[in-house]
């Protein structure tokens, strides 16, 4: 297509930053991060399938401080994308578009996903002690 210098509609840079915009871009960012994180899931399952030694290597890698950091980030990204995804599904059904609701559900997404992350890790740590 020929490039002509037609006037463009205002783009992202012209709007002032809003909290809801932050969640919008974080939904995309966490989606990309989760897609990358699935490599870890497939590696983990494949290691378990190939034997005890490979599984021990994988557990060692995931159990290292760096592995745990990645896993923690992955878990928060997962819960964030899950909560915000449910928010998107409500929008798809036609609910929650007004400013007050969109703001409240954004705030709820941040706090609920943080709470779920903490609960999941506390559960994991307690089961680890129990095993």
């Amino acid at each position: 297509m020929a490039k002509t210098a037609r006037p463009l509609s205002p783009h992202i840079s012209i709007y002032s930053w809003k909290f809801t915009m932050l969640l919008s871009i974080l939904h995309r960012a966490t989606g990309i991060a989760l897609a990358a994180g699935t490599l870890l899931l497939v590696y983990w399952l494949s290691a378990a399938a190939s034997g005890a030694a490979a599984f021990a290597d994988a557990q060692g890698l995931i159990g290292s401080w760096f592995g745990l950091l990645v896993l923690f980030g992955f878990s928060y990204a997962l819960f964030f994308h899950l909560c915000n995804g449910i928010r998107h599904l409500f929008w798809d059904a036609g609910y929650g578009f007004d400013l007050g609701t969109a703001w409240a559900s954004a705030l709820a997404t941040v706090f609920v996903s943080a709470a779920l992350t903490v609960i999941a890790w506390l559960a994991g740590i307690s089961f680890m002690g129990g095993l």
Binding site: A48, G51, A52, F79, L82, L116, A120, A123, F127, M128
Partner: peptide, 28 residues
């Protein structure tokens, strides 16, 4: 797929927490 992943994700995370510290035999 999003709708399917809501319960599947919750099941997955609960399972991973449950399996924390499991050895190879326990996991498989």
């Amino acid at each position: 797929t999003a709708l399917a992943l809501v319960p599947l994700t919750l099941w997955f995370v609960a399972s991973i927490a449950w399996l924390a510290g499991a050895d190879h035999a326990g996991f498989t």
